[in-house]
Amino acid sequence: MSGSFVVETGQKLPERILGPLTQADVLRFAGACGDFNPLHYDTELARRAGFDAPIAMGQMTAGIVAAWIADWCGVERLADFEVRFVAPVLVGDTITLTGEIADVASGDDGREVARLTVVAAKGETVVLKGRASAVLAPAMPG
């Protein structure tokens, strides 16, 4: 994925809606990453901890958002990605990912970089806020 990628400030990323997330989805991520904290699959324990259903790992939502951004710009262009966890995602939730180009600026190394702001939300509730930078004209890999 060499060559330039043209975007403009204010441009929206194509929205992605996922869900309702199932227990199987959360367990698939548990298997991928090795996080078997029972809060992610034990409904009774989750209830005692104050949740209506098992909670997804923050890293699962982060991974979902990162993959969505990379599907849009190409993983090769992703220079950084930052997330802040705002609220838990539960089994049964549907999450909507939205984002836009905050600005296009020159990075420290002189490359043009698009800075994105992204949000994952369930209904009106924001679960994750993120930022990412996509290099518009990266060096060739290798």
Partner: peptide
């Protein structure tokens, strides 16, 4: 796309858990 093989997803390093 110029890679030696398939590429890891952006947060793949979480496997270090």
């Amino acid at each position: 796309r110029g890679h030696a093989d398939v590429v890891a997803t952006p947060t793949y390093v979480v496997v270090s858990l």
